[in-house]
């Protein structure tokens, strides 16, 4: 299972990098979003994929049995990363909208007005 997900993450990274290298700003943004999700999956994979119990302390017991439960921490980390990713996606789309309003272009090659001539 880990092997399949690892290949899948690799594919996602490939798609993300491919989109980053396109000229359109919208595709660039899509690329960034795909990369962010691929990275979240890496954290998910770091906890290991196994068929185990849910991470609860059983009733009447003080501690959970580490043999049967899965590590819940990576999922908490992904939750944080997803929320941050959401905020960034909202901001970056707003920025794109504003940029389009100002310049009327989607072309990344037009972003050279502030560079050295």
């Amino acid at each position: 299972m880990e092997f399949i997900i690892a290949i899948f993450i690799g594919l996602l990274y490939a798609c993300g990098v491919y989109l980053l290298l396109r000229r359109s700003i919208v595709k660039l943004i899509l690329g960034v979003l795909i990369l962010s999700n691929a990275t979240n999956l890496i954290i998910f994979l770091s906890g290991g994929i196994q068929r185990n119990e849910i991470s609860f302390i059983p009733e009447g017991s003080e501690v959970a049995n580490p043999e049967v439960i899965l590590d819940p921490l990576p999922q908490a980390l992904i939750l944080t990363a997803i929320v941050i990713g959401l905020g960034i996606a909202a901001y970056i789309l707003a920025l794109k909208y504003k940029y389009f309003e100002k310049t009327g272009t989607h072309d990344l090659d037009q972003l050279s007005k502030t560079d050295q001539k």
Binding site: L20, V32, L35, S36, T39, N40, I42, I43, L45, S46, G47, G48, L73, P74, L77, A81, I88, I92
Partner: peptide, 16 residues
């Protein structure tokens, strides 16, 4: 943002 992805991917692998 790309630098953050590098950093988070590194954290994920390190935690693993």
């Amino acid at each position: 943002l790309i630098s953050s992805f590098f950093f988070v991917a590194g954290i994920g692998l390190l935690y693993g």
